[in-house]
Write a protein that binds this DNA or RNA. Structure first.
Lengths: 100, 100
DNA sequence: TTGGTATATCGGAAAAAGTCGATATACATT
DNA sequence: AATGTATATCGACTTTTTCCGATATACCAA
């Protein structure tokens, strides 16, 4: 993944917020039936509601974050759940600490 | 400094390159008379030549990086020298490791 | 003070990103 | 099969970013 794309993904207030929400879902989202935060993450609808932006915008933002390897998704039934991708975030941390 | 502005500053190929160049100036720039890399950094003209972009663009890019606290400047005579800002980069690293 | 060099700022054209509503797709239920 | 719900994709419009050339400013040297 291109470094620039990672930073572009992070250079938007809402996308940064989504990442902080996903860091501690239990603090930011109501309980979910049938899917726990730790394993699968949070579904798109919950994130969209909290953000206040449109469904299409949030869907796109999530795919931008996913293309940058900052989050990953799991489909369960009609829902798509997103959670933090620890490996991608670790790689980002390494870039900051060793390349710039 | 707003987090989003930091990531915006980083979401451009040339600006990222400038930061990597400034991390090891002795590897990327010729010797400078009257100013050592460690103390004052590298002058705008050297950075501009290496980048291949116009003088005005590089001047603007450097001020974007400076506004994000990623680099700092020193004026010596008619030259402005830029170098990495370790504190700002440390703060960025902390954001990555604790907030997202 | 005049001219030369280094950098900063301004104004603009082109490209990219932000954001929406409408529509498509995927899955579940009846 | 038909309907309903969740998410993804498309097309359009607006705002922001990229990058330039021209000009202004700051400093130096003669």
């Amino acid at each position: 993944m291109d470094q620039v794309e990672i930073f572009k993904a992070l250079s938007n207030k809402t996308r940064l917020q989504i990442l902080t929400w996903l860091k501690a879902p239990e603090l930011h989202f109501p309980e979910q039936p049938n899917a726990d935060f730790e394993n699968v993450g949070v579904c798109v609808g919950q994130i969209q509601m909290k953000s206040g932006l449109s469904q299409s915008t949030i869907s796109e933002y999530l795919s931008i974050l996913q293309r940058a390897d900052l989050i990953s998704s799991t489909r369960l039934g009609q829902w798509t759940y997103y959670k933090r991708n620890k490996e991608g975030l670790k790689k980002l941390s390494d870039i900051i600490n060793t390349e710039i």
